[in-house]
Amino acid sequence: MSSQLEMNEEFMKAVERGDSITYITCLLNMGVDINTHDEYGNTLLIQACLNKNKEMVEFLLTKSADVNGAGEKGWTALIVAVLLGCDDIVEVLLNVKDVNVMKKDDGGMTAIHHAAMWNHVIIVERLLSCSVPADINDNIGCTPLCWAACLGHVCCVDVLLKHGASPKHKSELLGSPLEIAKEKGHSDVVEMMKEAIRLTSHPYVEGRMSVMRHQYQQTIAQQESEIMRLRTATADTFDFSPTLDP
Rank of each mutant, 00 (worst) to 15 (best):
C49M: 04
L5A: 09
N8Q: 14
W118F: 03
L174D: 14
D88Y: 03
R17C: 02
L45F: 12
V211E: 11
G74C: 13
A165H: 03
V159R: 01
D98Y: 08
C156T: 03
I21G: 04
Q215M: 10
A181I: 13
E179D: 12
V211Y: 03
N95C: 10
T234R: 14
Y40L: 10
M117Y: 09
L173M: 14
P133A: 05
E224V: 15
W118E: 06
A48H: 06
G31I: 07
Q222G: 02
I197G: 03
V124G: 01
G164E: 13
P246S: 15
V132F: 07
L84M: 06
N139D: 09
S3Q: 06
A116V: 03
V80K: 15
M117A: 12
C26I: 01
F59V: 14
I197P: 02
Q217T: 03
K52M: 14
D106I: 04
V159Y: 01
V154R: 08
V57G: 04
N51P: 03
N100W: 02
Q218N: 10
L27P: 05
V205E: 11
R208D: 06
A48T: 13
L173F: 12
M12I: 11
S171M: 09
H113E: 08
C26V: 02
L44I: 07
V90E: 05
D88E: 15
A134L: 03
G164T: 10
I180D: 01
I227N: 11
F11I: 03
Q215C: 12
K63S: 09
H214L: 08
T143P: 05
V132C: 15
V121H: 00
T43L: 04
E16M: 10
D158M: 06
Y40M: 06
T110H: 01
G175Q: 11
E183W: 00
K184L: 05
H37A: 10
P177Q: 14
K182T: 05
L28Y: 11
G141N: 08
A181C: 15
L60A: 12
H202L: 11
W118I: 02
